[in-house]
């Protein structure tokens, strides 16, 4: 399974309205098309994960992630906020690119950790933040993953 096959255009938001970390988490959760109650539970879980340590891995990239019973399969979303969000990232720099990953407790294909690892690796590549900054459509985001053979 390639990373790009997991991203659907409706869950790629290149211009988040969010002004804060919490708003960004909510906005990305809302891209997944869950019911309101499930969104609330998922948001709470993501916050709980953030409380263990920020998922801002540096260089403007954050990867909030968790498992939850409210989803039935692995879901991902991408959000961009060019003016930056305070995510309490490891390098203390503002976060501009947010990759959300959520998975059910049980997955047949066990993709959650490999996907988390791949996105973390992707985020560490030198040219990636600049490439993400230049995207002008969700399709270009998919093409970027394709160019990286992800």
């Amino acid at each position: 399974m390639q990373l790009r096959e997991l991203f659907v255009p409706s869950a790629i938001n290149l211009d988040l309205a969010a002004e804060t970390k919490d708003e960004a988490l909510k906005e990305l959760v809302s891209c997944l098309g869950l019911d309101g109650k499930s969104e609330g539970i998922l948001y709470k879980m993501l916050k709980r994960r953030e409380n263990l340590g920020s998922t801002g891995i540096g260089r403007g990239i954050a990867i909030p992630h968790c498992r939850s019973l409210v989803v039935t399969r692995l879901r991902v979303a991408f959000g961009r906020k060019l003016s930056g969000l305070d995510f309490k990232a490891i390098d203390e720099k503002p976060v501009r690119y947010v990759f959300l990953i959520v998975a059910p407790p049980l997955e047949v294909s066990n993709q959650y950790l490999p996907v988390l690892g791949k996105i973390a690796q992707f985020g560490k590549e030198a040219d990636v933040p600049e490439a993400l900054a230049e995207l002008s459509s969700p399709e270009q985001f998919i093409e970027l993953l394709e160019a990286k053979d992800l």
Partner: peptide, 22 residues
């Protein structure tokens, strides 16, 4: 349940990833 799952994963699954990347 979700928190218990998170705990289990921290000790048996995502340990290295969480420690090294995050």
């Amino acid at each position: 349940q979700d928190l218990r799952m998170q705990r289990r994963e921290l000790t048996d699954g995502s340990t290295d990833l969480e420690a090294e990347v995050f």
